[in-house]
Amino acid sequence: MSAAIEVRRLTKRYGRTTAVDGLSFEVKPGRVTGFLGPNGAGKSTTMRAIVGLDRPTSGEVLVDGRRYDQLEQPLRHVGALLDAKGVHSGRTVRAHLDGLALSNRIPAGRVGEVLEIVGLSGVAGKRAKGLSLGMAQRLGVAAALLGDPRVLLLDEPVNGLDPEGILWIRALMKRLAAEGRTVFVSSHLMSEMALTADHLIVIGQGRLLADSSVTEFVSRNSRSFILIRTPEPEKARDALAGAGIEVADGPDGTLEALHTTLETVGALVARHQITVYEISPQVASLEEAFMQLTADAVDYRAKQEV
């Protein structure tokens, strides 16, 4: 499975601010790849660099092995939703799409098709200034789908959509990926990505923090364990280890028993007559894990480099 998008040591500076810092990753076809990071992590800058809107300070980005501006009729290769507000308010919905179709010699009939797909056929003759944010977002999706591209870039597509629209875009992204297309979608919400994405690229402060499947990311980052607070940690550790239970050291001298149940641990400490102050189940949510990961980006990198 060769990569549809290759980001190679991409760095982008705006004056003194480094938005993207030596970022490298690949996006492969046939699955939804989530691009996750807090606001200001460099997601939009990276997406803009993919379609050649921002010129990299160093490094390069390739789509189907070529720089975006070397693609013939690029809208037939890559569809991008970057900014829902990128429509002239005085132009009609249809006129906006008609122009884009002309630019890449896309048959005019395709405009009607994409309007149908995004559910905007009824407002085709309406001027863009009359559109709600959700409708503008759908128009942006229509523009992205116009050239029937193999690669789709969607920057925060859920923004401004109502609950029904959110379900719709999730289903659409999954369907496009199932058709073998490359779907690269950014979000600052881990929960949203957990529902849609198959693979995750996580960045913080312009650097890569994680590149793994969602299942792997979840199992690595959302830990559930039994917290044990005891004045006899050595004794407790031996007892747990003796029962074949994996133990980790928690903060403040606590122990964390993994892959076990509250009942098992309770029975075990009773049998070994260990004094405990607290035994409680703990679950770190995915959202918390993500927050932790990105908030401590600097700290995380320091540990990685050791």
């Binding site: 803009r48 809107l53 991008a80 970057l82 990128g86 002239h88 884009l100």
Partner: peptide, 9 residues
Amino acid sequence: GTIRSSLAA
């Protein structure tokens, strides 16, 4: 803001 869709095209 149409510059972005224009340059993408």
